[in-house]
């Protein structure tokens, strides 16, 4: 089964899903799936482990929400604004962070995300501890899309998710993506072939930040609020978990990981703090048993199986 067939299958599931499951839950899952895909672009293909991706996700949510609620922007424009704000934050933080590698890179991104967290806690427009509430779902495209209806909004969210997912797919399979893979594998060799590795890493960082911002903006529109939860270090950790569970460096892995984590949080919410314990257990089990994540393992088995049956 090729990547394309898996894609069509998942798309078919996504198209009928809102008739079966609760649309707001599905939309939340799609927002996090896009967030995890954006994160995966950075770690899976550029080899950069960011521990501060919540800053892009969360800040974009605030910017988007503020633009809709206070400035009265239409949601599509506000989401673009949120994504671009995250991209701009990515330019500044990325330019400094990519000078270091490995754990130091992770620490610098964590430090920046903590700065953004405290900024969001104190800044007047975020509502501090209360968050930014009551973001109206104004109609999109000049009234063409009545997104106050959950079903309509679901398909809008799905379209935006597919746009982001498609963009990431294109990036990974472009010559730019191949240079990224080469840098991840052997940076010195890529540089001595004539590539400025830092510039490529920075562009990947900015793209990842912008798409994470798009996901955060989308979430603000869906949930009609933006809160500090989305800027915390815990959120940065959660996206790492989603990518790991699904499979880092695989196309569908982050989507699967995000859906699993969000489903767990949703259906196990009644157990309270136990959700975190269960998440922890799953995390440990995945790291120990499926080093490549769920999708990574399945893909490996499938390849081995089809290679065996061809003989």
């Amino acid at each position: 089964m090729s990547t394309r067939n898996v894609g069509f299958l998942l798309l078919a599931v996504a198209l009928v899903a809102p008739w079966v499951a609760y649309p707001v839950f599905l939309m939340t899952a799609l927002c996090f799936a896009l967030f995890a895909c954006a994160f995966n672009l950075l770690i899976g293909y550029a080899g950069l482990m960011s521990f501060g991706h919540a800053m892009f996700f969360g800040l974009a949510g605030y910017v988007c929400g503020h633009a809709i609620k206070v400035w009265g922007w239409p949601p599509e424009l506000a989401m673009l604004g949120g994504a671009l704000a995250a991209g701009a934050l990515g330019v500044v933080t990325g330019a400094l962070a990519i000078r270091r590698q490995g754990i130091y890179f992770a620490m610098i991104t964590l430090a920046f995300s903590q700065m953004v967290y405290f900024f969001c806690l104190q800044a007047p427009f975020t509502g501090g501890e209360d968050g930014l509430q009551g973001i109206p779902r104004s109609p999109m495209l000049g009234g063409l899309l009545p997104v106050h209806n959950d079903m309509v909004l679901y398909y809008v969210v799905l379209a935006i998710f597919l746009f982001g997912f498609g963009a990431i797919y294109r990036i990974i399979h472009s010559p730019f993506g191949q240079v990224l893979k080469a840098i991840r594998e052997n940076e010195q060799r890529a540089v001595s072939l004539g590539y400025n590795a830092d510039r490529y890493k920075l562009v990947a960082f900015i793209l990842s930040a912008t798409l994470a911002g798009l996901a955060g903006s989308l979430k603000a529109v869906v949930m009609q609020f933006a809160t500090l939860t989305d800027v915390t270090a815990a959120m940065s950790g959660e996206v790492v978990l989603m990518a790991l569970v699904g499979g880092i460096g695989t196309i569908f892995g982050p989507v699967v990981g995000a859906v699993i984590i969000i489903t767990m949080q949703n259906y196990l919410a009644a157990t309270g703090e136990w959700v975190l314990v269960i998440q922890g257990v799953i995390f440990v089990a995945i790291v120990l048993a499926f080093r490549k994540g769920i999708v990574g393992e399945i893909a490996d088995r499938w390849r081995a199986y089809s290679a065996g049956s061809r003989k």
Partner: peptide, 19 residues
């Protein structure tokens, strides 16, 4: 040799920039 193992032969050939 520094062959990039995640790329195939043709991708390895096409990777270096034309200077």
């Amino acid at each position: 040799r520094g062959i990039f193992s995640s790329l195939n032969v043709e991708e390895n050939l096409m990777l270096p920039p034309v200077v």
